[in-house]
Amino acid sequence: MIQISNVSKRYSIHQVLKQCNMTIEKGKIVGLIGENGCGKTTLLKVLAGILRPNHGRIDGIHENDRSRFISYSPDNSYFYPYFTIEALMDFYQDVYEDFDRDRAESLLHFFELEKKQKIRHLSKGQAGRVKILITIARRAPLLMLDEPLAGLDPMVKQKIIKSLIQFIDLEQQTLLMTTHELMEVEPLLDDVVVMKHGTIIEQSSVESIRENDMVSLQQWLENTY
């Protein structure tokens, strides 16, 4: 279990995270949702160890080097454009002990990607799939995906969702993802965490929303916000 307690982050005078509290249970798929600019990406960066919070603490990550514990896919592109997909996989295999080459090869096949293709020549949909491949091929305890479905067509979205179900080992791994595609991810999520104006306003299990409030995730979010 990962516990985030009273985490705050300020950029000069801008308070981007205010007293954030949340719990990520092991083996769950957790969705971090909320309007643009509410602090989702900043919270992921704080978790990933890329940003240092001004206040608060994070418990449950038992590594000094967070990148050993967390496999993180930011929402921007970050691969060398002159790499082929194969070179990219080799690179990750060299850098991360937990990179599972077999899983990566299966994902390559599942996503119908060509090893020899260069990153710079990939379409948006292909680039999106490569990011997922590289991130979830690692056997890291925590996987974090920032907007994995943004701007992709419905077929690619479904393919990515299927890959998350098929290839992530929830006995050993936990997934935290940000998204706006509530309809698509609803069957995928165990828990949902809602952010607004830099803080966490709600955390709930998705099935209990359906059971108790009898509404869809989208409707519930509108009621909560």
């Binding site: 798929i29 479904q158 165990d190």
Partner: peptide
């Protein structure tokens, strides 16, 4: 559980349930 979760497109934890 996993096969059926993939087929139906839901979380394996849900399928376990």
């Amino acid at each position: 559980v996993r096969e059926y979760a993939v087929e139906v497109g839901v979380n394996p934890n849900t399928m376990q349930r």
